[in-house]
Design a protein around this nucleic acid. Structure first.
Length: 600
RNA sequence: GGGGUCGUAGUUCAAUCUGGUUAGAGCGCCGGCCUGUCACGCCGGAGGUUGCGAGUUCGAGUCUCGUCGACCCCGCCA
């Protein structure tokens, strides 16, 4: 029947028919979503990416159609020709865009039958992610996933339109590039023409976009894939997408303003939300002391207070040791926390210790006084000042931590995030964007015994801090900035070094010798000698941005074909071993004791 | 590299703590009935190497060890 039949070409999608089409002869195609067989009457929901439309097979209207509808099972791919008719008044479906009409079938074409899928293609899908990933093409049929992917598409369109309207040029940069030191592990690609040599996949197009600035493309952007061979997380995949941006003849303010306008366009176009700009800016040091993290979630308070001076001069060793060790005493106040059970407080203590801290000193606010192990060391005045600084009220719980400065703030940051979630303090309807600025240029890497770039080696130091490069490298601040949305870093960038001498100084600080610098970055250094403009830029984590905008907890939900936390593609089995012939062509030998057998 | 949660029917889970008869339920699937359903309804049925391997035991889904896999976190991710 299907072979001899003329191909039925759709005239409409499954999401667009309404009462105005009543009486029209139409053809729809799509997947059978559900069949409701009443014996004497069969309903079928036909689904495509635009929506669902109810088909009705009435034996009194068309006996043959009715009989053939009995064969139809979920996920069959069909075309149906029929007449649009209004539904009876008492059989409307207000939950469906097409719920006022139905199509009475007159002609059916089955393009393809379908096996029973391993999980049902429904919105309230509870299949395991493992199964969804293995059958990703089925998972992607679900409207929830389609919404995510379509939102991602709309986001990329807004981005392209915005940058185009602002005179930016989209330029593609190589995916096969030179392996560079510093940063993440590279994915390597062997070369057949040059055996024993390797390309690297870009961790980001950083050097290329700087060279484009030297070339005079003073406003560049690209939505591009980046690769980092590191361990995965809910918000980290080995390949991910960046919105990469670079501008010439700009300072921080110009870059930030362009990006704020981009975010305004995104919220306006996608959600019709007017974003308040300019966005707040907070210094790195300040965000650490207030939130214990460089990407604070501003959707809730619970700010950290530093009380080192306030509790000095006591007999309490924990405080005095911290002070003597040049550390801090800081904490936060939990509203109503005095009612926590012993077990709950122990749990918080455990979290702090897991994060590397020594522990917490809990102080309950009861009848205007503080209760707890540390309380007996505090004078009446100190207690009052403490409750004052924390703005603590009756039955609140002040949690203090004492110790080395960076660690103490870090553990309090972990504690703050935990409490924000546990106590449901996070207002999920809010979108809290902010800039974190004035990052340190370098951080000391204990393992390597040298300074490493906090951002990357091309980040410019603040001009007034350049003299410190020789004397106190750790104190040098960078012209770097991060954009943070609801506690997630969604973009990071900097004003770059554009002079060879300063770049060389930077390499030297990083322990990259002149030879190595020449060998790895000689092309960039040379370019700087032919007239490099001052420039700077930024890169957005496109997947993370899409994830947050889609209200998801994992970037896997906004990536069509993501990998598992062990970097495997469950659908196609990548990575896989290759045959000897391929290896021989590349001049490669595998030196792994036991190559794991691929499943299937 | 480290820590944690999980792995039982096609699927989502129960039975595991406290070892003991035939490993249950919802959804799906198959068959039957049903002309206004839309998560249709009703009746019946099929469906299991309890991830894999070893050990303890008279006896293991259950306890122990190993291993594989998924997910979350730390390290790592300029």
């Amino acid at each position: 029947m299907t072979e001899s039949q003329k191909y039925l070409s759709r005239t409409h999608t499954c999401g667009e028919l309404n009462e105005n089409h009543t009486g029209k002869k139409v053809t729809l195609s799509g997947w059978v979503d559900r069949r409701r067989d009443h014996g004497g009457l069969i309903f079928i929901d036909l689904r495509d990416r635009y929506g669902k439309t109810q088909l009705v097979f009435n034996p009194q209207r068309n006996r043959e159609m009715y009989e053939s509808a009995k064969e139809l099972k979920p996920e069959y791919v069909i075309a149906i020709e029929g007449i649009v008719q209004k539904r009876p008044e008492d059989a409307l479906n207000p939950n469906l865009a097409t719920g006022k009409i139905e199509v009475s079938a007159e002609n059916l074409q089955i393009f393809n039958e379908a096996k029973t899928p391993p999980f049902q293609i429904t919105d309230n899908n509870d299949a395991s992610e493992e199964l969804r990933l293995k059958y990703r093409y089925l998972d992607l049929r679900r409207s929830e996933m389609q919404r995510n992917i379509i939102l991602r598409h709309r986001l990329s369109q807004v981005v392209r339109n915005y940058f185009n309207s602002q005179n930016f040029i989209e330029i593609e940069t190589p995916v096969l590039m030179k392996s560079t030191p510093e940063g993440a592990r590279d994915f390597l690609v062997p070369s057949r023409l040059h055996k024993g040599r390797f390309y690297a996949l870009p961790q980001s197009p950083q050097t290329y976009k700087q060279l484009l600035m030297v070339a005079g493309f003073d406003r560049y952007f690209q939505i591009t894939r980046c690769f980092r061979d590191e361990d995965l997380r809910a918000d980290r995949q080995p390949e991910f997408t960046q919105i990469d941006v670079e501008m010439s003849f700009v300072d921080e303010n110009a870059v930030l303003a362009v990006m704020e306008n981009l975010m305004s366009a995104v919220y306006k176009e996608l959600f019709n939300i007017n974003l308040q700009t300019p966005l707040p800016r907070i210094g790195y040091r300040e965000t650490i002391t207030r939130y214990g993290i460089d990407r604070p979630d501003l959707r809730f308070g619970l700010e950290i207070q530093t009380v080192t001076g306030l509790v000095s001069g006591t007999e309490f060793r924990v405080f005095n040791d911290a002070i003597a060790g040049d550390g801090v005493i800081a904490g936060l106040s939990v509203p109503g926390g005095a009612e926590f059970s012993r077990k709950q407080v122990d749990e918080l203590n455990r979290i702090v210790q897991e994060a590397g801290g020594k522990g917490l000193l809990p102080l309950k606010v009861k009848e205007g006084k503080l209760q707890g192990g540390a309380a007996k060391f505090l004078s009446e005045t100190q207690m009052q000042k403490l409750t004052g600084q924390f703005s603590a009220n009756e039955d609140d719980l002040i949690l203090l931590a004492a110790g080395e400065t960076d660690l103490t703030y870090k553990v309090l940051g972990v504690l703050r995030t935990h409490l924000g979630n546990q106590l449901n303090l996070i207002d999920r309807s809010r979108n809290e964007l902010l800039w974190v600025v004035d990052f340190p240029l370098l951080e000391y890497d204990e393992e390597e015994g040298r300074y490493v770039a906090m951002h990357h080696p091309f980040t410019s130091p603040k001009p007034e801090d350049i003299p410190l490069m020789g004397t106190d490298p750790g104190a040098v601040r960078a012209r770097a900035y991060d954009l943070v949305l609801n506690g997630t870093e969604i973009a990071g960038g900097s004003i770059r070094i554009h002079r060879r001498d300063l770049q060389q100084k930077m390499f030297k600080l990083l322990g990259i010798g002149e030879e190595e610098a020449k060998e790895k970055f000689g092309f960039l250094m040379e370019a700087f000698e032919y007239g490099a403009p001052p420039h700077g830029g930024i890169a957005f984590g496109f997947d993370r941005l899409a994830m947050i905008l889609a209200g998801r907890k994992s970037i896997r939900d906004v990536i069509a074909f993501p990998k598992t936390t062990s970097a495997i593609s469950l659908m196609d089995g990548a990575p896989s071993s290759v045959d000897e012939k391929q290896l021989a062509e590349l001049g490669l030998k595998i030196d792994v004791p036991e190559i794991e057998k691929e499943n299937e």
